[in-house]
Structures are given as structure tokens and as C-alpha cells.
């Protein structure tokens, strides 16, 4: 079930260093939101603050509000573990568990969330998720082999399968295609377009065409200088960002006149 996320006045810190400042944005359900911007401006940091993965780094903290369908994710009584169960994440580098088979990798999240699963039910989840991630045909004959024996693109799709197997409300993807070839990239882009019917998707990408191809809305992050916090400079429908952005900085960045 896709959900809407509202972020208000969000500041994100690593210890004393303020990495991101004053983010206000509403992320719509059943759509793809792309985040672009130069390296080091805080896209990954912001993305990780949405599912409370930011705070697993020692000293890292957040000020401000992130509200998902009325629920404050940073509320005092909210367990970060539950937040992460609702908001899945795919990382830049494919990270299937090397000690688990492909089958067990897909079920890793389900095994956490639930009591015992019947074999038939588990088989069903595995097939559905792998089909969902466009990987089923390639691995259906070797589900008991280690996930680390797949190609990079296959591993990344395995990670997507693992993330969608638990039916999260939101899927966060941090440069999911940056380690992949163009064909795997297209496969994953197609996949995102299919998945957005069911999930809210937020993707960080350095690939401008990718943002333009897949997303409904785009946010542009930038920073004023080294040591300064990153800011969300502009957030608009993707078409507008790429044709007629409000901000000069956005236009400079997407047209390559950056710096």
C-alpha cells in the first residue's frame, strides 16, 4: 500500500557537521520521485533519513519532521525497526547476503517480520517477488545457489526482490543502477515503472536521462560550498524541472553548466 511522505524543516547531522538543512517536501504515493544533484550534496543522507537508516551511523542525528500518512516517523514512541519494515531500501552497491541462497535472500525480510511461513506460502512469495523484479526466469533453476554467484545486475534485481517481498509502503533506491550496464539499467527502470502502481518510490540518481525517463517529480539538491550543508533547491514535476526550472542553479546543473 503506497503512502505519502511529508518532510518539514528537516536538518540532518553527522555529529556536529550539518550535512543537510531545511528540507521541506511532500512525496506523493504511487509515483516515482527522483533526487538529483552534485556529489556530496546530501542526497543519500536525506534518503537514509526517510527510513531512519541515517541514525545507525554513530553520532548521526536528525532534527525536524518526517510524517508518513499522519504518523511521525521520528515520534518518541516509534520503533525505527518498524519504520524500516514499512520503508524498504535498495543500495547503490548490490548487497545480497553472501551466506544465503537466492531463495533465502528473497525471504530474508519476511523471515524477520513474521512467525513461521508455510513452505507453499514461502515459495509463492519468492516466485512473486522474483517475477516482480524481472529475475525469475534467470534464476528459477538455481534458487538454492548463493546470491553472490549472480552478475551485478542480477544481484541488484535480487536486492529489489528482497525489498519488495515484504510489501513495503515505500521503496527508497540510492543510485540503484550506478554499477550496472545499460541493459540492466533499462530492466530496472522498466521495473520501477511497474512497481510504482503499488509503491511510493524515491530514487537518487546521477543519470539525468534516467530521472527524466522514469520520474514524475524531481528534487534538485545543491550546496553552496565545501563544509556547507546541502539544501533542496527546487522540487517540481519532472517535466518542468527539465524544460523550465524555477531556479537558475537547477538549469545550470541539468544543462551541464555546473560549478
Amino acid at each position: 500500500m503506497a503512502k505519502r511522505i511529508e518532510v518539514s524543516d528537516l536538518d540532518i547531522y553527522y555529529g556536529d557537521f550539518k550535512a543537510v538543512e531545511g528540507v521541506n517536501v511532500a512525496i506523493e504515493p504511487r509515483s516515482i520521485t527522483a533526487l538529483i544533484g552534485p556529489s556530496g550534496c546530501g542526497k543519500s543522507t536525506f534518503l537514509r533519513s526517510l527510513n531512519r537508516m541515517h541514525e545507525v551511523i554513530p553520532g548521526a542525528r536528525v532534527e525536524g519532521k518526517v510524517v508518513m500518512d499522519g504518523q511521525d516517523l521520528y515520534g518518541a514512541d516509534v520503533d525505527p525497526v518498524n519504520v524500516r519494515r514499512q520503508i524498504g531500501m535498495v543500495f547503490q552497491r548490490p548487497n545480497p547476503f553472501p551466506t544465503m541462497s537466492i531463495y533465502e535472500n528473497v525471504l530474508a525480510g519476511n523471515r524477520l517480520n513474521s512467525k513461521r511461513m508455510k513452505k507453499a506460502e514461502a515459495d509463492d512469495v519468492v516466485e512473486r517477488s522474483l517475477r516482480g523484479a524481472n529475475l525469475w526466469n534467470e534464476v528459477k533453476d538455481r534458487l538454492d545457489r548463493p546470491g553472490s554467484g549472480l552478475s551485478g545486475g542480477q544481484q541488484q534485481r535480487l536486492c529489489i526482490a528482497r525489498a519488495i517481498a515484504v510489501e513495503p509502503d515505500v521503496l527508497l533506491m540510492d543510485e540503484p543502477c550506478s554499477a550496472l550496464d545499460p541493459i540492466s539499467t533499462l530492466a530496472i527502470e522498466d521495473l520501477m515503472t511497474e512497481l510504482k502502481d503499488r509503491f511510493t518510490i524515491v530514487i537518487v540518481t546521477h543519470n539525468m536521462q534516467q530521472a527524466a525517463r522514469v520520474s514524475e517529480s524531481t528534487g534538485f539538491f545543491n550546496l553552496n560550498g565545501v563544509g556547507q550543508p546541502g539544501r533542496l533547491i527546487e522540487f517540481n514535476p519532472t517535466e518542468k524541472i527539465f524544460s523550465n526550472p524555477d531556479e537558475k542553479a537547477t538549469e545550470d546543473y541539468i544543462s551541464g553548466r555546473f560549478g
Partner: peptide, 27 residues
């Protein structure tokens, strides 16, 4: 860290993270 974060991002508690990503690796 890659695999520890993978476990945490799936909603693993610390002990579950250890079971999924640390113990198998250290076995």
C-alpha cells in the same frame, strides 16, 4: 557494513542483524 546495513534496512533488530550478517560471516 554493506550486509549489516542490508539487514537493518529490512527491519532487522540488532540481534537479527547479527544473526543475518555477522554470525554467518564470522562462522
Amino acid at each position: 557494513a554493506l550486509h549489516r546495513e542490508a539487514a537493518l534496512a529490512l527491519g532487522a533488530t540488532r540481534w537479527e542483524m547479527i544473526r543475518m550478517a555477522v554470525l554467518p560471516y564470522g562462522k
